[in-house]
Write a protein that binds this DNA or RNA. Structure first.
Length: 204
DNA sequence: CACTAGATTTTCT
DNA sequence: GAAAATCTAGTGG
């Protein structure tokens, strides 16, 4: 299977977000390997995106978003939760894609133990749930996710993809009118359905 | 099923 | 000092 090129991530966040759906996120912790198919994402930008951490100035926390694409941006929020992003856009231009939900593939038993539930659809159907299921923490911030590290993306170009649903982003105050959340239509592992399903688009 | 509140820490004002 | 790209447990219908 052809791996991801760095240039895949060097594009606008919304493009990378949509095209990332269907590919696989892998975590290796010692002998424990867990993985899941990406079924839900959100795109974030810079100064033109008030909901983004990079909306204002460059700080210690958000500086990863300004750096080279294809790296991880893991941050801590709400007192106890880590959220995982992949950096997008050319170096110098801030951007990231938040991984919001996975369909569990490998290491389901390990995920169940880490998450404390046996319900498959509760293992990784949310940005903080999936980091818990894959044991992703602040230690994984600012790491290459294309080059064989313990947390990495593996391309699956052959994955059959459902149509993509586009909605506004979740859990934000400003910029909530922007249609920058994408998920695979009808997938039970998506974090939250929307009442009238948003606009659906297809891509190849 | 819908809604509420608490957890708990980092960042920015 | 307040808010935050969230989740869980609890209450009540």
């Amino acid at each position: 299977m052809r791996p991801f090129a760095r240039s895949f991530f060097e594009r606008p966040s919304a493009v990378v977000a949509v095209e990332l759906l269907g590919h696989v996120l892998v975590s290796e912790r010692g002998r424990e390997r867990t993985s899941g198919r990406i079924v839900e994402v959100e795109a974030y930008y810079g100064s033109n995106d008030p909901a983004s951490h990079a909306a204002k100035r460059r700080t210690a926390r958000n500086s990863v978003m300004f750096g080279p694409p294809g790296r991880s941006y893991v941050y801590f929020t709400y007192g106890s939760q880590y959220l995982l992003n992949v950096v997008t856009c050319p170096s110098g231009t801030p951007g990231a894609v938040l991984i919001r939900a996975l369909e569990p593939l490998e290491g389901v038993a390990v995920m169940m133990r880490r998450r404390g539930t046996r319900e498959r659809t509760l293992l990784a159907s949310g940005p903080a749930r999936l980091t818990q299921a894959l044991a992703v923490t602040g230690e994984d911030n600012d790491r290459d996710v294309l080059d064989g590290g313990p947390v990495r993306l593996e391309a699956d170009w052959a994955a059959t993809r459902s149509p993509v649903v586009v909605t506004e982003r979740i859990g934000i105050r400003e910029g909530s009118d922007l249609p920058l959340r994408y998920y695979l239509a009808g997938n039970p592992h998506v974090s939250k359905r929307v009442k009238p399903e948003g606009l659906t688009v297809t891509h190849g």
